[in-house]
């Protein structure tokens, strides 16, 4: 069971590696258990999700058909720490939907993206109909979903589906470097920042501003905020404790 998804945690950074392609319900169960565990572990300050081999995460609809009623995006979207997708190869169907549930997407130059469900008489079933329009705008999102078109990493970058493209051999290292840097930051600020963005987008602007303000003043009670401001004044690197 454990070999389907590998989890390694080092100095506040969790690295989740998907080792089954195409993904199935077993992988989804294991991923859900891992995300649950990470959410209870306040020592975890950032996570990287990556695939193994030539693909990031493949198309489950082709493999399992309409019966494939499992979700990879739900547990990942529930993670309260920042999540970086290291898209080492193609992200098709549910694989792309998984990437959409992450906060920052770094893609290999050779990676391809598509949501081909329509070709099998289906629609995306793991969140893309909601997350993709919110990410790249309604027009580009609906075009991708209605045509099943395959796009390159450069096109994905251009439309804002990923935030950077690097050579395939560097993807994981770039993501790990970003993850390690985040793991050195104030963990409650990272979590509250993410919470303010996502919850805020589901609310009116005025309600979102209220939420941001409440979370901001709650952070006034943390030692890390004091350390952050002090270190800036003293022109030294901050030492955050997650408190």
């Amino acid at each position: 069971m454990n070999s389907i998804v590998k989890l390694e945690c080092d100095r506040g950074l969790a690295v989740i590696r998907l080792e089954q392609d195409p993904p199935g319900p077993g992988l989804a169960d294991r991923l859900a258990a891992i995300c649950d565990e990470l959410n209870y572990n306040t020592d975890i300050r950032a996570a990287v999700i990556t695939g193994s081999g030539p693909v990031f995460c493949g198309d489950a609809a082709t493999a399992h058909g309409a019966q494939a009623a499992f979700s990879l995006s739900t547990p990942v979207a529930s993670l309260n720490c920042p999540v970086i997708a290291a898209i080492n190869g193609d992200a098709i169907g549910i694989g792309l939907e998984l990437a959409l549930a992450c906060d920052i997407r770094i893609a290999a130059g050779m990676a391809h993206f598509s949501l081909p469900e329509i070709e099998g008489g289906l629609i995306p079933f793991d969140g893309a109909t909601q997350r993709l329009p919110r990410l790249v705008g309604r027009a580009r999102a609906i075009e991708l979903m209605l045509t099943g078109e395959v796009i390159t990493a450069d096109e994905a970058l251009r439309i804002g589906l990923v935030s950077r493209v690097v050579p395939a051999e560097d993807v994981l290292n770039v993501a790990l470097e970003m993850g390690r840097e985040m793991a050195g930051k104030a963990s409650w600020a990272l979590r509250y920042c993410k919470e303010a963005v996502y919850k805020g987008l589901d609310r009116t602007l005025a309600q979102g501003l209220q939420l941001e303000g409440d979370l901001y003043f709650l952070l006034h009670t943390t030692e890390d905020r004091v350390e952050g401001v002090k270190s800036f004044k003293e022109k030294r690197k901050p030492e955050f404790k997650g408190k």
């Binding site: 920052i104 600020a189 941001e212 979370l215 952070l219 901050p238």
Partner: peptide, 27 residues
Amino acid sequence: EVALGFIPAAGATQTVPRAVGPGHALD
């Protein structure tokens, strides 16, 4: 802000995602 141990408080967590989407905003 986050690097200094807090979050923006003059609306950036709301206004930036509305302008550029959640992906670029979180980046």
